[in-house]
Nucleic acid binder design. Structure first.
Lengths: 267, 267
DNA sequence: GCTGGTAAAG
DNA sequence: CTTTACCAGC
């Protein structure tokens, strides 16, 4: 039995509902985790997604900023919203569902971007980001007995050298500074998570899931970063069969700056 | 010798420089008075209008709001900017030019819209509008000996019954309330102006120069108003040969909500 | 630099 | 409905 999950920072779900529909029609993942929906739960374009088979939708939205949503073909046993850093941001949503007799917890996360200056003393956004990642250490892949876990989303950190177009040029750029990359890898390790994208694609191969809107020709310059991630508990990591970065989506009309990433499992 | 003048609320001259160029190429009025340029004099797209023969440009702009500009094929003898209501708004610009041996003063005006509620007690925007129109009474068509005068622009008032799509339905709507229409007609009379559009087009014929952006199909519903005007001193009113409301311009790509109005004279 | 949402104005 | 400014994000 296969199971697939996609994570996608959609950068306004209202503006890109059509892109979401196209993606769901073409790829049909079992679960789609969206970040940066940028709308309240009331504003979420639920009607647009009807009739596609994604009858189970969990929302954690807020006005204008952030916001996460999980759409699923499989019903949820449980929905949890965690208020990281207790600031009231809509940045986390987890659901539990059952695939056959396997229970799976799916965390959907949107880590703060962190602003421009990589100094927690002077930049409160960067401090917030570091605190968020620190708090993420407590999210345990094996926290629920008998439940496998997946954690995906826009983590806004590119931890490895080949997660950015130029390791050297980005060492002082927020998303690839040592304090962030170390923090993220620490959270991953302490939480007993496996980086599924890197389990499938070797560390010496570049992976990008995000290309800035600033570049005239994102494809030609290809100055991307891997900001989006899929992590799994050991129990589910063993079942991973494929990871797909949907790069062509960046070339769609009026695209998000992030592309979807799909992990597929044989359970 | 013919002379023609066009008034046009352009609703951002930067966004619609191409429309202005198209209009000038097709119609070639001697003078074009623009309102709602929505830019400072530094931001005005002067370069875009080069090579069309409109070498004489007078500007009274401000950041983001209001702003008037007069483009001319005939040089100016004089330029005056009047600060109506002494609030520092860029809503007036007058130039003087010579056509043969006739001197003409051309006033270019953008009267405040006045907000939604037609009550000067509760709505300061409406109070401002009424004060502006009151001050307009002092603009005299015969103020300069030996100089004919034209006054044009977006006066934001539709004074006659056939200046709106429904007199009855608009009596309490700002732009057609009795206090405004009476105020405008008083200013016209006291200033010894002739309504040139209504000299050419009889009062029992509807004239519209503006259609709301809000209507789905402006042409089908045709719920317009005559908010734009051309007035003249008696001396030049006698020379009027035609008035053209350029209605098709409302159907151009990404149009202004106002269309140009041209008055033509045989001097 | 390009994108998004908000808010005010018309 | 449209435009502008402003703010935030990346």
């Amino acid at each position: 039995m296969t199971f697939s999950l996609t994570t996608w920072n959609i950068n306004s779900v209202r503006l890109r509902a059509d892109a979401v529909i196209r993606f769901l029609r073409e790829e049909r993942p079992d679960v789609l985790c969206l970040q940066e929906t940028k709308c309240t739960d009331e504003q979420f374009p639920l009607a647009a997604f009807e009739g596609l088979g994604y009858d189970h939708v969990a929302l954690n939205g807020q006005k204008a900023y952030h916001g996460v949503a999980t759409l699923s073909r499989i019903p949820f046993d449980d929905v949890v919203r965690q208020d990281f850093c207790a600031v009231g941001d809509a940045r986390h949503l987890s659901v539990r569902l059952a695939v056959g007799d396997r229970k799976i917890r799916v965390h959907n996360l949107y880590v703060p971007a962190g602003g421009d200056e990589p100094d927690p003393q002077t930049n409160p956004k960067f401090k917030h980001k570091l605190q968020f990642v620190d708090e993420l250490r407590r999210t345990d892949a094996d926290g629920e007995p008998g439940v496998s876990a997946l954690l995906c989303g826009d983590l806004n950190i590119a931890p490895y050298e080949n997660d950015v177009w130029s390791h050297k040029q980005l060492l002082k750029i927020v998303s690839h500074t040592p304090v962030e990359t170390q923090g993220l890898l620490t959270a991953m390790t302490e939480g007993r998570w496996t980086d599924l994208m890197r389990r499938h694609i070797p560390l010496d191969e570049k992976i990008f899931t995000w290309w800035s809107y600033r570049a005239k020709d994102w494809e030609a310059s290809n100055r991307g970063r891997r900001l989006d991630h899929v992590w799994g508990s050991s129990s589910i990591a063993e079942a991973l069969t494929a990871v797909t970065v949907h790069t062509p989506v960046r070339g769609w009309d009026r695209p998000s700056d992030h592309v979807p990433v799909t992990a597929t499992f044989s359970l």
